Computed example of a mutant assay.
Amino acid sequence: MSEESTVDTSDTAAGLAIAFPGQGNKPDATVEALTRYREHPLVAAFLRRSGLADPADLDLRDTRMAQPATYVCGLASVSERFGADAAPAAVLGHSLGELTALAQAGVLDPWDGLALAERRGQICHAQQDARPGSMIAVMGTGLDGIEWIRRQAIARSGGVLELAGLNGRRQTVLSGDTGTAREAVAIAGELEVLAEELPIGGSFHSPLMADAIGPWREAVTAVPFKPAATTVVSTIDAAPHTDPEELRELLIRALLLPVRWLDATKGVRDLGIERVWDAGPGETLHKLGRREHIVKFVRLPALPQLEVQR
């Protein structure tokens, strides 16, 4: 399907899949969203718990802040656009966005989801302290080129570096210890392949997160899960799900397994859904979708600017 950045004039979510990003957004986009939605109960609660009234004061390089901030902004965006009873045809989420998608689909109570987003941030922060790591994006080469870079970096450093995100046919995210990740960036430069370290404090979706699975499983297991009211296309197995226990286990494993974003968008297409909207914050998923021409990532008409009381 040819994909263009078209404007969708629909006022409902019917026939539309909604996509939720992970924490790798531009901080300015997250601050803008928090400011816009600051009266939403989830956003207000997050800001109150952070101890900072002004979103601009948040350190969004800290995963303990970035994860719940991204979560509340995604749900608030859908609520403002489509109302509290939004009923999309499907939902999907990139990394942390899988948690947001489950809340939107009714699998999780949104407040339980916020508690999990906060706990996930705490667990990941502690794991970064214990086993520091980094993530890099490599663009302009396929999996054969990625593997050439990855294996050479491991051979030079003796460290860990694994596929963490399959975002597109020519965009892949690698995750591992910081030394090996930076070695991979250097090797990519030697090959004139674009690679850059991501501003994310952690080695998400790599073996370095293995010790975090225990406390994360404990947190996820303690929260009730319900059958999905709308189909969730998981970015862990790229398949549609409604069963709560399947979705619980996928959410747990998502901390360690790679994000199969490209395959998940194909899974949306296979359900007969042709339009996807990126709930944000930012337009990271929209931009990824435009490059791949699998489904149509649509823009929606701008909403009126809100007056923000400071």
Score class of each variant (00 low, 15 high):
residue 2 S to P: 14
residue 5 S to Q: 12
residue 6 T to V: 15
residue 10 S to R: 15
residue 10 S to A: 15
residue 14 A to R: 11
residue 16 L to W: 00
residue 20 F to V: 08
residue 20 F to C: 08
residue 20 F to T: 04
residue 21 P to R: 07
residue 22 G to M: 02
residue 23 Q to R: 06
residue 27 P to T: 05
residue 29 A to M: 08
residue 33 A to E: 01
residue 34 L to E: 02
residue 34 L to G: 04
residue 44 A to Y: 00
residue 50 S to H: 03
residue 51 G to W: 10
residue 52 L to S: 04
residue 55 P to S: 09
residue 56 A to T: 09
residue 60 L to N: 01
residue 64 R to I: 04
residue 65 M to L: 00
residue 67 Q to H: 01
residue 73 C to N: 00
residue 75 L to G: 01
residue 77 S to G: 08
residue 77 S to I: 08
residue 77 S to H: 11
residue 79 S to C: 13
residue 79 S to N: 11
residue 83 G to Q: 00
residue 85 D to C: 02
residue 87 A to R: 15
residue 87 A to K: 14
residue 97 G to D: 01
residue 100 T to P: 11
residue 104 Q to V: 10
residue 109 D to S: 05
residue 109 D to H: 06
residue 113 G to K: 06
residue 113 G to N: 06
residue 113 G to V: 08
residue 121 G to E: 00
residue 121 G to P: 06
residue 121 G to A: 08
residue 124 C to V: 15
residue 131 R to N: 14
residue 131 R to G: 07
residue 134 S to V: 13
residue 143 L to R: 07
residue 145 G to C: 00
residue 146 I to H: 01
residue 149 I to S: 04
residue 151 R to L: 11
residue 152 Q to S: 14
residue 152 Q to I: 13
residue 153 A to T: 11
residue 153 A to L: 11
residue 157 S to N: 14
residue 158 G to E: 05
residue 159 G to K: 09
residue 159 G to A: 07
residue 159 G to W: 10
residue 165 G to S: 14
residue 165 G to N: 15
residue 169 R to N: 12
residue 169 R to S: 15
residue 171 Q to G: 07
residue 171 Q to M: 12
residue 172 T to K: 05
residue 173 V to C: 08
residue 174 L to W: 07
residue 174 L to H: 00
residue 177 D to W: 12
residue 177 D to A: 11
residue 177 D to E: 11
residue 182 R to E: 15
residue 183 E to T: 14
residue 187 I to N: 06
residue 189 G to Q: 10
residue 193 V to H: 09
residue 194 L to G: 06
residue 198 L to P: 05
residue 198 L to G: 00
residue 199 P to W: 14
residue 199 P to I: 12
residue 200 I to A: 10
residue 202 G to K: 09
residue 204 F to P: 08
residue 204 F to Y: 15
residue 205 H to S: 13
residue 207 P to M: 13
residue 209 M to K: 10
residue 209 M to W: 13
residue 210 A to M: 12
residue 211 D to E: 15
residue 212 A to P: 07
residue 213 I to F: 07
residue 213 I to L: 15
residue 215 P to G: 04
residue 219 A to C: 01
residue 220 V to S: 02
residue 220 V to C: 06
residue 222 A to R: 12
residue 223 V to E: 07
residue 224 P to E: 04
residue 224 P to N: 04
residue 226 K to V: 02
residue 227 P to V: 09
residue 229 A to S: 14
residue 233 V to D: 12
residue 236 I to H: 06
residue 237 D to Q: 04
residue 241 H to W: 11
residue 245 E to I: 04
residue 246 E to H: 12
residue 246 E to C: 11
residue 248 R to T: 04
residue 249 E to Y: 10
residue 250 L to K: 09
residue 255 L to I: 14
residue 259 V to W: 00
residue 260 R to T: 02
residue 260 R to E: 08
residue 262 L to I: 10
residue 263 D to F: 00
residue 266 K to G: 13
residue 267 G to N: 04
residue 267 G to D: 06
residue 269 R to C: 10
residue 270 D to H: 09
residue 270 D to P: 06
residue 271 L to E: 01
residue 280 G to Y: 03
residue 281 P to K: 00
residue 282 G to D: 02
residue 284 T to L: 15
residue 286 H to R: 13
residue 287 K to T: 13
residue 288 L to Q: 02
residue 291 R to Y: 04
residue 299 R to G: 09
residue 302 A to K: 14
residue 302 A to L: 14
residue 304 P to D: 08
